[in-house]
């Protein structure tokens, strides 16, 4: 491999064509003969370099382009333009040598076979990936042990609960020991217990096997706990690329002070550059670390303070603020 990167993209983009319809019967008739199409940019020109062994968390609203990026990199869809190399292969050529080294987990889709048991699915996967049968069996046992789900391996997939099914899917994904993992919403729709179990498992797995991972999730905890690099995508564009703590730093507001007054304040107040009009009762101020001491001084000089609280701003909120600002 000439490139030092596991994943590298240059000006990679993808656009879609959609069609708009006027309402009513007349609109339908018009749409039947004559359609107006519009181009929509799902992924704007992306330049990305990911080193082997890196765990990249991707965050963004629905339709921001995360899934599109994953689909292009895993060879599912062909980009509208630009280049991408993953492990030295162009993904959408779907070279079997590439496909054997990578895996995709799509949280909302079943990848195992619905009507047969996970064990049967795994032996089918062993045939597809040309794995040694005995080794594959041991690996299933090992992974099932880690995920604590050995008891359901022989039950048909359609009879399993969502959480169990997801665990089964994860085993299926990791069976061929992939070097690259694309995990799209691995914990979506699961209850807290299952989420935590899967998170814990993935953390242990990446520590041991050191694969390159791109992970998307709606649950910021997934990202914060697992990822060592964060990509924030908004409207098809990467708007932040760095570490998780670095992101929190960059997005200034780090801590939140909330308090109330027993009497409405008599004068307008300025706390950490934020304005509060005369008569305010409830206050909520976000401050950076270096603003904290002076702001606290200011607040404590007020009379009639009740319910003063200082909280760490939630990671999730930080991201939302960042996106709103950007």
């Amino acid at each position: 491999m000439s490139s030092p990167f596991a994943i590298e993209t240059t000006d990679l983009f993808r656009s879609y064509r959609t069609y708009e319809k006027n309402p009513g019967i007349w609109g339908s008739l018009q749409g039947f003969w004559n359609r107006k199409y519009t181009e929509k940019m799902a992924l704007a020109a992306t330049n990305l370099q990911i080193e082997p062994g890196q765990i990249v968390g991707m965050v963004g609203a629905n339709g921001a382009g995360k899934t599109t990026l994953i689909k292009v990199l895993s060879g599912l869809i062909v980009p509208s333009g630009g280049q991408a190399k993953v492990l030295g292969f162009t993904p959408w050529e779907r070279d079997y040598r590439y496909l054997r080294q990578m895996t995709v987990l799509l949280g909302q889709k079943n990848q195992l076979w619905w009507d047969i048991s996970p064990n049967d699915s795994y032996s089918l996967l062993a045939d597809i990936y040309d794995l040694d049968r005995g080794k594959a069996k041991n690996r299933v046992q090992e992974l099932a042990g880690l995920l604590d789900c050995g008891s359901v391996l022989k039950t048909q997939l359609r009879r399993l609960s969502l959480g169990e099914r997801m665990k089964m899917e994860i085993i299926g994904c990791l069976l061929h020991d992939p070097k690259i993992l694309f995990l799209d919403e691995p914990t979506i729709g699961l209850d807290i217990v299952a989420q935590t179990a899967i998170r814990k498992f993935l953390a242990e797995y990446v520590k041991e096997k050191k694969p390159t991972v791109i992970l998307t999730s709606h649950y910021m905890d997934d990202i914060a706990k697992l990822a060592d690099r964060l990509l924030l995508i908004s409207k098809g564009q990467i708007v932040y690329d760095g570490t998780v703590p670095g992101f929190a730093q960059k997005s200034k507001s780090k801590q939140k002070i909330t308090f109330a007054l027993t009497e409405p304040c008599a004068h307008p107040l300025i706390l950490a550059e934020q304005h509060f009009p005369q008569g305010t009762l409830q206050f909520s101020v976000e401050v950076t670390d270096h603003q904290l001491p002076s702001t606290m001084n200011q607040i404590t000089s007020l009379t009639g303070i009740t319910d003063l609280r200082l909280e760490q701003v939630d990671f999730e909120e930080v991201i939302h603020d960042f996106m709103r600002g950007g």
Binding site: L76, L99, L106, I128
Partner: peptide, 12 residues
């Protein structure tokens, strides 16, 4: 339905 996704990513 996009079910093709799960087949395309496999070496077959």
């Amino acid at each position: 339905s996009g079910g093709l996704n799960t087949l395309l990513v496999r070496p077959m």
